Simulated assay, not measured.
Amino acid sequence: MIRHILLDLDDTLYEGSEHLSSVVDARMTEFVARLLEVPEDQALRMRRYYAPRYGSTLTWLSEGCGLPDPLLDAFLEYVHPEDIRPFIRRPEVDETWLAGLEVPFSIFTNAPLEHALRVLSAIDVSPGLFTRIFDVRACGYRGKPHASAYHHVLSSLGIPASASLLVDDREENVRALVGLGGYGVLLLRDGQEGPYPFPTIRSLRELPRILEELDGRLARL
């Protein structure tokens, strides 16, 4: 049975504007350009080349460029807006709904902890509702979909992958946990269409139905 739910943060606990993604992406390019002292168009080409190979711009800066932790923290601080409220269209859920989940749940995000706390404040959800908040620092600056990030989270919770379920809006993140033997649900946004090899939902409020169906299927095995 599912013993713990891992909830992505951005575009999962809330529906964000497309403008947020463009702002974060532009800030990443600006940071790289200043760091490497190259024009922004060259920095963008470098990011587009290296980020897919390393899994993210952050991991490329860490492993490919050898940036120390203080500079990685500076990157995370720079790219995440200090005021997140203008980028939030609407929260997916509220505290009452979260408290009604029958399975413990944690946040699992590629953002830093301070960004997660700003988001929770903006959508009026208490951090105390979550068992843990696993941010990218907690995972050694290697976020989803790196296997090491999932292993760290599962080890910290003391559960096998087969007892976990991830809800995320990015297919590669869901696919990574499924590949480790866990379960995943893909939260679809406008324009996304299947089919996918795992359950999909259009709203986080559909999650109890998915849990019931999954537990029923597991009980019959």
Rank of each mutant, 00 (worst) to 15 (best):
G140W: 04
H115T: 06
A116C: 05
D168Q: 02
R132I: 02
Y183D: 05
H115S: 09
L186T: 04
V174N: 04
A138E: 15
A116N: 02
P112T: 11
A163V: 01
R137G: 08
D135A: 09
S155C: 07
K144N: 12
A149P: 06
D124N: 14
F108C: 00
D124R: 15
A116H: 03
S162L: 09
T109Q: 03
L117W: 09
H146M: 14
R132H: 10
L188I: 04
L165M: 00
H151C: 09
L113T: 13
L180M: 15
I133V: 15
V185I: 08
S156D: 11
E172P: 11
F108R: 00
I123F: 07
K144M: 12
P145T: 14
V153Y: 02
Y183L: 01
L186A: 07
S148E: 11
S148D: 14
P127F: 07
A147I: 13
T131V: 11
V119H: 06
R142A: 13
A161W: 02
S126Y: 05
F108L: 02
G184W: 00
G181M: 12
L187K: 08
V174K: 02
A147F: 10
E114H: 15
D168G: 02
G182N: 03
T109C: 05
T131D: 15
S148K: 10
P160S: 03
S162F: 07
T131I: 03
P160A: 06
S164F: 00
V185W: 03
P127D: 06
H146E: 13
H146L: 14
D135L: 10
G191Y: 07
A163Y: 02
H115V: 05
S156F: 03
F108W: 00
V125S: 01
S156P: 02
A122V: 07
N173R: 08
C139S: 15
P160D: 05
I159A: 06
R170P: 08
A161Y: 04
V125Q: 01
L166R: 00
G143Q: 11
G140Y: 06
D124W: 10
P127L: 06
D124E: 10
V167E: 01
K144F: 11
H151T: 14
Y141E: 11
R175S: 13
S164T: 01
I123V: 15
R170T: 15
S162I: 11
V167W: 01
S121P: 04
A149E: 05
S162T: 14
P112S: 10
D190Q: 15
A161R: 02
V136N: 14
H115A: 10
G158N: 10
S106W: 00
L180F: 08
D190H: 13
N110W: 09
L117P: 10
P112W: 11
S164G: 07
G191F: 09
A147M: 07
L188N: 04
R137I: 13
L117H: 15
F130E: 06
S155Y: 04
G143I: 10
H115W: 06
V167P: 01
A116Y: 03
Y141A: 13
G191L: 11
L154Y: 03
Y150Q: 08
R142S: 10
R189L: 05
V119I: 08
A147Q: 12
S106Q: 00
L177F: 06
E171V: 11
V125A: 03
Y150T: 12
G184A: 04
I159F: 06
V167L: 07
V125F: 02
C139N: 09
H146T: 14
I107G: 00
P160K: 03
G184K: 00
C139M: 13
